[in-house]
Design a protein around this nucleic acid. Structure first.
Lengths: 250, 250
DNA sequence: CGGTCTGTTGAAATTGATCAATACCGGTGG
DNA sequence: CCACCGGTATTGATCAATTTCAACAGACCG
């Protein structure tokens, strides 16, 4: 899995950036100037690199916060093609980023990136738009946690992950995708217990809506799932995404 | 309440921007060039102004999302001095902004603001840093919702609001502040029922930790409250905030 | 083949929701 | 000044969703 294609991350990053902004291939090409500084992380290894930004090349990462008594809150996942800053706003940070399984990142020095942004305003804009997309995902997370039931939360999250993986070409044609995340972590993401996550998947399986084995998910009936939770596809939010499909009566 | 001071919003905005970035008074002064375009909103009136940014001059606003069956999820509050973009990423938005009570905003056209940012990179940086602060608050919201109990959620939110109001000089010297928010809205913010919000306040009152009347809150024992929920003061996150107080053994 | 990590299942315990009645508070009009 | 009104908060009783605890089953790995 790790190391399957050396340049995929660039394509993925560009795909995302071009969806949220009007960055051209040509403008993006400037990033070729960056030294490809790769770093591999083991499962649950903390990714700490002040002064750098990370682009996920392979695997998943997660941002989380721990409480003194051991409770863990998982804020979001970063999937291949995602870019994020690793510099804490201020040292003494309480939230961390770790690798979900084995993961590989491309590290970009803040200074190098700022140089590129200064030279290419379009790139800077694209990056800010990407940050706004991140904020939107966090909003989804708040929606799930505040007013959706456990059943709805799981569905909503699966749809969002599927949606995001689709943007970077990592979902299968049969609505399937890899989700290398143990139930315990999903629980910490959705504010539930691992036990209830398990029960919810069982229910979804019984209802024929979702198939799931270890690390593999197949959405058997995306349309119904979308309706159940009123899921708002990311395409609707991307300035340069395709228009909403016909029949959207909302 | 509304209209008590005509220029306060500038001071408040500057105070916040200077805390998250190294914006100088002088650089900020450029915003004086903006026409002061005020708009008043009635309680729960939807604030819609594509192409504009809003600065809260007076009152509170809230961003929320409604579900088809009437459930409401409140994402965050915007307090006096807060600046935020009112342009939806794409039309057909599902989340809205409304006024909590009576509120007054200063509207700034996106174009005007971008002009200022182009002329003053420091201002642009400050704005982006402010956006990052917003994301951080959303992270707090996720923490509350995912892994804190009802009791802890209420405390954590009160501390955050107090903290934010302090940044713009709107909290009283006795740890008191105005919170013009009905229980129902707090419930929609914290993923609880209005009834349980009420019970939780009663408990906090009985424990002598918090005093609360309609729209007025007094934190009787901030230190204890902070400890209960491991609240991380914003100062710790602000690049230019004062250093953490001594005795922080964390 | 044993060890470890992850998922599943059942029973009991808990947190918080819901429903419904009542109290309160601030304003308004008589 | 008092009576009434609408909105909001409080209280009690009951109900439901989800947690916890604990045991067991599967998968993967050396």
């Amino acid at each position: 899995m790790v190391g399957d294609d050396a340049t995929g991350w660039r394509d993925r990053l560009y795909r995302k950036l071009s969806l949220v902004s009007s960055l051209s291939r040509q403008e993006f090409a400037q990033t070729e100037a960056l030294i490809e500084n790769r770093r591999a992380f083991r499962r649950d290894e903390i990714i700490e690199a002040p002064g750098y930004m990370g682009v996920v090349r392979d695997g998943w990462c997660y941002r989380y916060r721990l409480l003194a008594d051991g409770r863990r809150s998982v804020f979001n996942f970063w999937l291949p093609g995602d870019i994020f800053r690793l510099t804490p706003i201020k040292p003494g940070l309480k939230s961390s980023v770790s690798a979900v399984g084995e993961a590989e990142l491309v590290m970009i020095a803040d200074g190098d990136f700022q140089g590129l942004c200064a030279a290419s305003p379009a790139l800077a804009d694209a990056f800010h738009a990407h940050e706004r997309l991140d904020a939107l995902l966090l909003g989804n997370q708040v929606l799930r946690l505040s007013r959706l039931t456990a059943y709805e939360r799981v569905i909503h999250l699966l749809l969002e992950l599927w949606d995001r993986l689709n943007l970077v070409g990592l979902a299968g044609p049969d609505h399937s995708f890899e989700m290398p995340v143990p139930h315990t972590m999903l629980a910490d993401m959705l504010g539930l217990s691992n036990v209830h996550i398990s029960r919810t998947f069982t229910r979804l399986r019984e209802e024929g809506l979702v198939e799931s084995r270890r690390g593999q998910v197949v959405l058997r009936d995306p349309a119904t799932l979308i309706e159940i939770v009123e899921y708002d596809p990311l395409r609707n939010w991307l300035p340069n995404g395709p228009p909403a499909p016909a029949g959207n009566t909302d």
